[in-house]
């Protein structure tokens, strides 16, 4: 089932077009990455999905229905800039957000306690928000979004400020939520996480969708012109005519071949001057696709 559907959505602020004719579709049980450089139009798109701003043209559908504030009761939103009341006690705050989402106070309390246990933050419930570390506040914000059991979860940079242990905990939780059938949209600059977690992405640049679809499908569109070599010996082969770009990490190199560059020829050249432990032809990472796509457009 399509949970979010944007069709030809445009939003302009005074002289700047923030989002231009954007179309995308997100299904239930899907982890969706909304990507793009700073100022590309990600936050503007999210604000329109959340009904904070209204599109100038185009349509937005939530849960297969035309946009309606009522449907926002099934949506969770965690903005990039975390917003919690600093002076409020954590549990009071969670109950308040739960009640705003239409849950009775007692039920909100019960769910808050359960989530706090799950995210290993039960000790913080009696404290004021301002007394907590940034990472803990992040978890509280995360819980406040989930109390009403939303069908769609939208998160702007959900991993920023989290240490590796907590980032892994959040990743696991998001995957569990996805497996429960919830649609999860997140925007991030961390391409490794997108690659690891997302089923589909939409890359936005200057307000327009420049790349969208399932991650596997997108990656398969790009030729396998990346090579990873682990070697010992001379690195003279790095001057090969087949190579367009090299990242040399002493004994481990990541190479982008020229268009129509020949990997076999490069292997021969390398093995003639060095001992090769690993030679792997790989597809480009999402980060490279991102830089290539956005950088190419920016140059154009």
């Amino acid at each position: 089932m399509s949970v979010v559907e944007l069709a030809g959505v445009t939003k302009a602020y005074e002289t700047k077009v923030a989002v231009n004719n954007l179309s995308l579709s997100i299904d239930s049980g899907q982890m969706f990455g909304l990507l793009g450089p700073n100022g590309a139009g990600k936050t503007s798109s999210i604000r329109m999905i959340m009904g904070i701003t209204i599109p100038d043209s185009g349509t937005i559908r939530l849960f297969n229905q035309p946009f309606d504030r009522k449907s926002l009761e099934r949506v969770a939103y965690m903005p990039e800039e975390r917003g919690l009341y600093k002076k409020m006690k954590v549990l009071d705050q969670l109950i308040f957000f739960g009640e705003l989402h239409g849950i009775a106070a007692a039920e909100a309390r019960k769910r808050a306690l359960a989530w706090a246990e799950r995210l290993d933050i039960a000790d913080a419930l009696g404290k004021k928000t301002e007394e907590l570390s940034k990472g803990m506040q992040q978890k509280i914000q995360f819980i406040s979004c989930l109390l009403h059991d939303p069908g769609l979860i939208i998160m702007d940079e959900p991993f920023s400020g989290l240490d590796p242990v907590n980032a892994a905990l959040l990743e696991r939780t998001l995957l569990e939520l996805r497996d429960e059938g919830k649609a999860i949209v997140f925007s991030t600059h961390r391409m490794d996480q997108v690659e690891k977690l997302c089923d589909a992405i939409c890359l936005v640049n200057k307000g327009e969708a420049v790349l969208s679809g399932r991650v596997r499908e997108i990656k398969s569109r790009y030729e396998r012109n990346h090579v990873i070599i682990e070697f010992e010996g001379s690195s003279d082969f790095l001057n090969s005519q087949e190579i367009a770009e090299v990242n040399n990490f002493s004994g481990h190199v990541e190479i982008r071949l020229k268009h129509n560059g020949n990997a076999q020829k490069l292997l021969k050249e390398a093995s003639s001057v060095a001992t090769i432990y690993r030679f792997e032809l790989v597809e480009p990472s999402l980060e490279e696709i991102f830089i290539q796509t956005v950088g190419g457009r920016a140059d154009a």
Partner: peptide
């Protein structure tokens, strides 16, 4: 205070 703490973003996704 709510504007500087960005709590509006969260609140406006729930209330008008």
């Amino acid at each position: 205070q709510e504007k500087t703490s960005r709590i509006f973003e969260v609140m406006l996704s729930i209330v008008k």
